[in-house]
Design a protein around this nucleic acid. Structure first.
Length: 599
RNA sequence: UGGCCGAUGGUGUAAGGGUAGCACAGGGGUCUUUGAAGCCCCUAGUCAUGGUUCGAAUCCAUGUCGGCCAGCCA
């Protein structure tokens, strides 16, 4: 099956970042291209992260480089082990069969090693690839706390950082505003010795949370706020999920990130646009330390915005915490775990990422692009099966109660190698309620009183009688089967306008099927500052009980099916031996739905 | 009213001085034992105004519009 996917030549993407990397490769600027994907373990990964993962791992694989998976875990108050685990699972899932060989991890439990360069002790974090056969784990920024702390001491010695006693509120006041310069902290001129002593006491836990900070000494009047003596270290008497109680001072993102990149030998540190204004600080820190090895550089691209979708860990967290969805892996969520549960394959997500490109323009991507990628992937890959979601009974009056007709059905017309299976036609079958209309419009190709339609893989039937109950509701349709129109039959070539799917009423298996629609009724849920909770789609989940063909009793978690004429489906994790539960990944395109609304 | 970044069909994205191309969406047709898929065709665009140039989407200037930045979050 994977041969199908790989037999289609995948165009190598080009974008402004890859252009830069291509130039650097041509210049032989680096021995190897090393990128990184550095999520903070404070939530689950979503489709926005998928764009970043595809970019970073994509570059790594295109240039025979490596992409380090790193937990950017410098804020213990918000982070959790649950997230570091889900992140690993999601990343591995997304790059599976594509960039596994580029996944940079480190040997279990290791940290940076000392390295003396030019008489000066520096530090380096080594990656270990899968081929090396050792137990591995992701990188953790928190594994570098010791080294980062030493770099902070160096900065103090250089007179480029100081301990500030300003309260958080005062720090804010002194910072000024975008159009008004800040004011120097009264603690800015402390001696190196005093700063060193104070930093040591901070680190030793002598001061309460928020009492003091370590700040870079840059320029309080800089038009760039992030150069106005940014805070580098803060006091937090909190246990860390990875380092335990070892520290009570934690570096901030700006200080930890550039140094983590440096320690790992990252060549291209790719992040989203909102960090653009941080880049001068990123460069300042690395340059201030006059580090002996090549410095990483930061490049920024626009984060993903998707129609009818909320992409923000914080807001997804709100949906989860408030019980508006069933969990981080609710199939309606754009989380990787949610989409995986829904039946989206990593191939589709990768194709989506490729097709939207990488730019610095803050775009709103049409959700149809995602849907197209999912359908294209599943069309090629998914096994075809028959299922009826909203059943109505058809009695084939010319077939005996115990008679069955054996038929051959194609498993996937897009993939001849997938072969065929045998299905049984019986006297009573289920068809879709939508596939019969008592009073049908002219362009309706399906079953109507006196009309003919083909039962997929079987034969043409004619509707002779519509049977109703006392209340006038249709209970069943009496039809005659034209067996000579079967495949290979004497009248097989007979044409009718419509072909519909069906499931044997006596052999079919009942199943619960969960149908998903977009979570929001508005393309931009938060447009004009509106609360996204006010535009939740009440119909985003509907549950139906239908019948599936017998072979589906052998379905496994992780397999994708096309229920013919309906859409793509997969087993849900709620499935059990006694209760079949399927998710609809996405519908098939429905030309009739468009046609039928035309007057 | 500070700084940084951006602007190409409805939506995205190419073209980086030389014919504005591709995808999605939309429309039409064809095929069809999935009203799917496939195949064919169509619709539709360089934010504005100046300037440089034989020639500008591309370079320059100004303007307009949009995004980001004032966490001891990332």
């Amino acid at each position: 099956m994977s041969e199908i996917a790989s037999s289609n030549p995948v165009p190598v993407p080009a974008d402004f970042i890859r252009d830069i990397v291509t130039t650097h490769v041509a210049e032989k600027r680096y021995p190897q291209i090393i990128t990184r994907f550095p999520p903070e373990p404070n939530g689950y990964l979503h489709i926005g992260h998928a764009k970043s993962i595809c970019l970073n791992f994509g570059i790594a694989r295109e240039y025979q480089g490596r992409c380090n998976l790193r937990m950017d875990d410098t804020n213990p108050a918000k982070e959790d082990l649950e997230y570091v685990e889900s992140i690993q699972e999601d990343v591995r899932w997304l790059i599976r069969g594509w960039a596994d060989h580029c996944l940079g991890l480190k040997a279990q439990g290791t940290g940076p090693i000392d390295e003396v360069i030019g008489g000066r002790t520096d530090y380096r974090m080594e990656a270990v690839m899968a081929a090396d056969g050792v137990e591995r784990e992701p990188f953790f920024a928190s594994d570098y706390f010791e080294q980062i702390h030493r770099y902070a001491v160096q900065l103090i010695r250089l007179g480029k950082a100081y301990i500030c006693d300003l309260s958080p509120a005062d720090t804010e006041h002194y910072r000024g505003s975008p159009d008004r310069p800040g004011t120097d902290s009264p603690f800015r001129t402390r001696s190196v010795e005093e700063n060193l002593a104070l930093f040591a006491r901070m680190t030793a836990g002598e001061f309460p949370d928020g009492a003091r900070t370590l700040r870079a000494k840059i320029d309080m009047s800089s038009p760039n706020i992030w150069l106005r003596d940014p805070v580098l270290y803060r006091i937090r008497h909190v246990e860390h999920h990875h380092t335990g109680a070892r520290w009570c001072v934690y570096p901030l993102y700006d200080f930890a990130h550039c140094l983590s990149d440096y320690l790992e030998g990252i060549t291209h540190s790719i992040c989203t646009l909102e960090f653009e204004v941080h880049r001068p600080l990123y460069d300042w820190i690395l340059q201030a330390l006059t580090l002996p090895r090549p410095l990483p550089h930061q490049y920024e691209f626009a984060r993903l915005n998707l129609g009818y979708t909320l992409i923000s860990k914080r807001k997804l967290m709100a949906l989860v915490k408030e019980g508006l969805v069933s969990g981080w892996d609710d199939p309606r969520l754009p989380t990787l775990s949610g989409m995986r549960r829904r039946g989206v394959r990593p191939e589709a997500l990768r194709e989506f990422a490729r097709s939207i490109g990488v730019t610095k323009y803050n775009a709103l991507t049409d959700v149809a692009v995602l849907e197209k990628a999912i359908r294209d992937d599943l069309n090629r890959y998914a096994t075809r099966r028959l299922a009826v979601l909203r059943p109505i009974k058809v009695v084939l009056t010319n077939l005996g109660e115990t008679e069955t007709v054996e038929l051959t059905a194609v498993n996937n017309p897009e993939d001849p190698a997938s072969g065929t299976r045998t299905i049984q036609l019986t006297r009573e079958v289920w068809i879709e309620q939508d596939d019969f209309m008592e009073v049908a419009p002219p362009k309706y190709f399906r079953l109507r009183p006196g009309g003919e339609v083909r039962l997929k893989y079987a034969c043409i039937i004619r509707c002779d009688d519509v049977v109703k109950d006392a209340a006038g509701r249709i209970t069943e349709l009496h039809c005659t089967a034209q067996f000579d129109t079967r495949t290979g039959g004497t009248n097989a070539a007979k044409k009718v306008k419509g072909t519909i799917h069906w499931v044997s009423a006596s052999l079919g298996i009942p199943a619960e099927v969960r149908l998903y629609d977009r979570l929001f009724t508005e393309e931009e849920p938060e447009k004009d500052g509106r609360d996204f909770k006010s535009v939740l789609n009440p119909g985003s989940l509907s549950v139906v009980f239908g019948f599936i063909e017998p072979s589906l009793s052998g379905a496994n978690l992780g397999e994708n099916f096309q229920f013919e004429r309906l859409g793509y489906f997969c087993l849900d994790s709620d499935n059990s031996a006694t209760k079949r539960v399927f998710n609809r990944t996405i519908t098939l395109k429905d030309a009739w739905a468009k046609e039928s609304v035309k007057v």
